[in-house]
Write a protein that binds this DNA or RNA. Structure first.
Length: 567
RNA sequence: CGGAACGUAGCGCAGCCCGGUAGCGCACUACCUUGGGGUGGUAGGGGUCGCGGGUUCAAAUCCCGCCGUUCCGACCA
């Protein structure tokens, strides 16, 4: 493609509304343009990348026996009512105003609809059906460019099996396919496994990419691969022993002391000697939560431990329940359920609030002074704590969910009556699996992981063009001619070439654009080198430059360059 | 849906507090110049100041309402 004729409107300035790197660069590199909140047009350059990603997905899905469908986005509302998901999705589901249709946010219903009509015997299975199509979700808050949109491209596949073992096999196939897909796309990813998923069901894995732009916070062990959402993640932390010394509880005047930090400073004690109090409200009444020092309460773990939904108490509720404001609340004399983090198990000589303002209590022995105390793991894991599986330090960071595979079971086949006859003639619901990949997220994550201050750095598989040919000073006929000849020659050899043949752009301008667009290899035709039959080659990723003889620019040489650019 | 900010030329912004007929940089058009990391110059084109209402002799500017976009939070099959 000649740049002088291409629609590649790059931006030299950072668009005001973009914050995360991938969003900024996709706009600047003319891959996408916004149309509304969470709605983007994909421009030709972006679409070339999108097609490369979907082609990789297609190849790997076909390799595990997947069969591609093309399904309607417009779904009859009634099949969504069969599964109860009109209600479950709520406002997220786009509904058509002048027909009883919904815009599909996913395709379990449609796929199950087809399965129930035609998959009638165990002999018809296994099946793996997939599609790569646009999904619609009325996100309350679209953000981060293409990472959370109201309309997005998703590969979703569904497996249909007659036995749990069959489902396991289909699931395994997807697991392997997904690993290959993300590896081929050049992403550094990790997997959050079944035990930690909040999805329910009998098994699931989330394929994640570490990124500040992510919406989930995860704990990950580089060494053994353990990964879990921080909502459920555990780490090795040891409970401190009881003190030999025993004291009765005593109140201490602590005027103005609110936080654990202030308390430690005031009393010259260590954080670990403090029991921090947080009051949560549940439908079954208030619960006092005790944490060691400044550990933060993990509300997901708390809800699991108490068995009902919790919310932090309002300031006036705290006062009414405990008689004190936040900062002076403690377990001694607290009337109601008390649950403490495991790190406080049977500890003594602790400091906590006295349930009257400006006073704290010392010498607390949870065993002696607090009746009916319960213990549970309530902490949020922190970076650097050791992995429960292998002991190596855990990293805690934000991450983006790229893909999700999980064993659905019979939820949809039961509600939609997708039944089959087994070997013994018994009627059973089809056992399903559901597997998704966000295509734009793959693109955005790649850019999040592969860019520098100048722009995107594509690898040879995803790059919209493999080679960016720059003709400097195209007003000089002999140079323009040589550049054009090289362009034609490389195209003839089968390479995708973007040729900057603009006459009115300065050298520096072209270099900046080339770095922004990020093709793996740049070939620069300039006067001085051309005079001795050479061009300059630049590897985008490393910035490495070298001279090459024009006559040597054959298929083998160029392929070697592309290999080198990917290292 | 709670909290905050913003909306002025294609993009990035100033002007608003203190009302008086809209400006800067980039981009764009023409010509000259330059030609290996965003050349320099001359001359131009382009804006119902998000929308609606109000106050006023007069509103980008003050007041009210709405819409849109972004950020933080809630939410996230």
């Amino acid at each position: 493609m000649r740049l002088s004729r291409a629609y590649i409107p790059t931006l030299k300035e950072v668009p005001n509304d973009a914050v995360v790197a991938s969003h900024i660069l996709m706009l600047r590199a003319a891959m996408i343009r916004p149309v509304g909140a969470g709605i983007y047009s994909v421009l030709p350059l972006g679409y070339r990348v999108m097609k490369k990603v979907t082609e990789i997905i297609r190849e790997e899905m076909d390799a595990i026996g997947g069969q591609e469908f093309h399904l309607p986005a417009l779904n009859p509302k009634e099949i969504w009512e069969e599964t109860g998901r009109v209600e479950a999705f709520g406002d997220i589901l786009f509904q058509i105003k002048n027909r009883d249709y919904v815009l599909a946010p996913t395709h379990e219903e449609i796929m199950t609809y087809h399965a129930r009509r035609t998959v009638q015997s165990y002999k018809d299975m296994p099946q793996i059906w997939y599609q790569i199509q646009t999904k619609f979700r009325n996100e309350p808050r679209p953000k981060s460019g293409v990472l959370r949109g109201r309309q997005f491209l998703m590969k979703d596949s569904y497996s249909f099996d007659s036995s749990p073992e069959g489902l396991d096999a289909s699931y395994e196939l997807h697991d392997k396919a997904y690993r290959r897909i993300f590896e081929r796309c050049g992403l550094k990813f990790f997997i959050v496994g079944a035990s930690s998923g909040a999805m329910g069901g009998s098994g699931s894995e989330e394929f994640m990419v570490a990124s500040e732009a992510g919406e989930d916070t995860v704990a990950h062990c580089e060494k053994c691969g353990y990964a879990a959402n921080v909502e459920v993640a555990a780490s090795n932390v040891t409970t401190l022993p009881r003190y030999e010394e025993e004291k009765a509880c005593y109140d201490i005047s602590t005027p103005g002391v609110k936080s654990i930090d202030e308390l430690c400073e005031f009393l010259k004690i260590n954080e670990t000697e403090c029991a921090k109090s947080r009051v949560y409200i549940t439908e079954k009444g208030p619960v006092l939560v005790l944490m060691q020092g400044n550990d933060e309460v993990n509300e997901t773990k708390l809800e699991k431990a108490v068995g009902v939904a919790v919310r932090p108490g309002h300031p006036d509720e705290l006062k009414e329940i405990t008689g004190a404001d936040a900062g002076s609340i403690g377990p001694v004399g607290f009337k109601g359920r008390i649950i403490a983090d495991n790190l406080l198990l049977d500890r003594n000589m602790l400091f906590s609030g006295a349930n009257k303002n400006d006073y704290h209590t010392g010498g607390i022995d949870l065993k002696r002074d607090v009746n009916d105390i319960e213990y549970a793991d309530l902490r949020i894991v922190e970076s650097g704590e050791s992995c429960t599986k292998c002991g190596a330090p855990l990293g805690v960071f934000k991450a983006i969910e790229l893909g999700h595979i999980f064993k659905l079971g019979t939820k949809y086949s039961e509600s939609m009556k997708a039944l089959f006859l087994d070997e013994h003639g018994a009627e059973k619901p089809i056992i399903m699996g559901s597997y998704g990949i966000g295509v734009e997220r793959v693109m955005a994550c790649y850019i999040e992981q592969n860019h520098d201050e100048n722009g995107i750095i594509w690898n040879k598989l995803l790059a919209p063009y493999q080679i960016h040919l720059i003709g400097l000073n195209m007003k000089k006929p002999h140079l323009a001619e040589a550049a054009l000849k090289l362009y034609d020659q490389m195209k003839r050899l089968g390479f995708d070439v973007l040729f900057d043949d603009r006459e009115d752009a300065q050298a520096g301008f072209k270099f900046k654009d080339a770095d922004l667009l990020g093709m793996p290899v740049q070939i620069i035709v300039g006067e001085k080198k051309l005079a001795v039959g050479q061009v300059e080659v630049k590897i985008r990723k490393t910035g490495e430059r070298m001279d090459a003889e024009l006559v040597n620019l054959d298929k083998e040489f160029l392929n070697k360059l592309l290999e080198k650019a990917d290292e």
